[in-house]
Design a protein around this nucleic acid. Structure first.
Lengths: 152, 152
DNA sequence: CCTTGACCTGGAGTGAACTCCAGGTTCTAT
DNA sequence: ATAGAACCTGGAGTTCACTCCAGGTCAAGG
């Protein structure tokens, strides 16, 4: 009986550090991992699948606290499936909203880049040493400024 | 001379907190803001535009340190326009890559949600008290686990 | 037998990005 | 004139998500 992956193998496969794997177990993101007779961790396939999901949630912006909540629900078994689904759906909605925001930001950044490029075109080729005008390359439309990050 | 916005007004319009506005100035993200005779800050239109850009960069994941670098370049005037553009283009590329990753994650999460819903369908209506099987709702395909977050 | 390297634990330390506080000034309304 | 709100500064404290460390155990090679 010494099947399963060592913590090092899991770290390599998952991209998480060894310390992070232990940390996740400490805070209850991973249920206590099986041990070899030596006391060393042995991760099973289902641990890998779970870790993969955790990474996905983390990378899509879910805070660890919420992931812990999710992990707790999971450990409570089938009775919590609906609740878990709701949690994921909620997260999914937030994520899609976030992606829309990012989409809008890229457009705006693209415009900003275009304006800079325009500035370059106006300045560089005409190497007339015009006294470096520090005028507004910030960009026009100082208009909206519409509450992007809600601070409580 | 007492034109311009108070720090409170800017906080409301921008969604940043008053403390954050002062903090950003301290670390050099904002050049020293104009003051009323009283010593109170008075933000001008061009400050608002700049703050708007800062928020955009922050919300798209640029670390403050890089934003500070960008702000420094800006203060050095027109000579740094090309460098600033390159910085933004670099950021834009990273951002687009990030959005692609998020896209893939949403797809996977959507599948996960579908599997949970499937579990619910199988369990809930048949109210036969089957001994709560803690079998794998983790989902299939524990396959790839392909290094998602590069830990140095 | 001894070293080397992977692993263990509990706890302390880190970096990023704020957020709060004390103690003091200034504006505004009554 | 004075209470109370808004502002100022410098510095300390907080939260999050790790990351590192000391001191010890365990397995394999020379």
């Amino acid at each position: 009986m010494d099947t399963g992956f060592t913590i090092q193998q899991v770290a390599q496969r998952s991209g998480l550090s060894i310390d992070t794997l232990r940390y996740y177990e400490r805070i209850g993101l991973l249920a206590p991992v099986a041990r070899a007779s030596s006391g060393h961790r042995r991760y099973m396939e289902h641990d890998l699948a779970w870790i993969e999901l955790l990474i996905r949630l983390r990378d899509t912006g879910m805070p660890l606290a919420q992931m812990v909540r999710f992990a707790q629900l999971r450990r409570q078994g089938d009775a919590t499936i609906a609740e878990r689904r709701l949690l994921l759906e909620e997260h999914q909605r937030a994520l899609e909203e976030h992606m829309r925001v990012l989409e809008r930001h890229t457009v705006a950044l693209q415009q900003k880049i275009a304006r800079l490029r325009e500035c370059e075109r106006r300045l560089a080729p005409a190497s007339i040493p015009a006294r470096a005008t520090a005028h507004g390359e910030t960009g026009a439309t100082a208009g909206d400024l519409g509450a992007s990050s809600a601070s409580k």
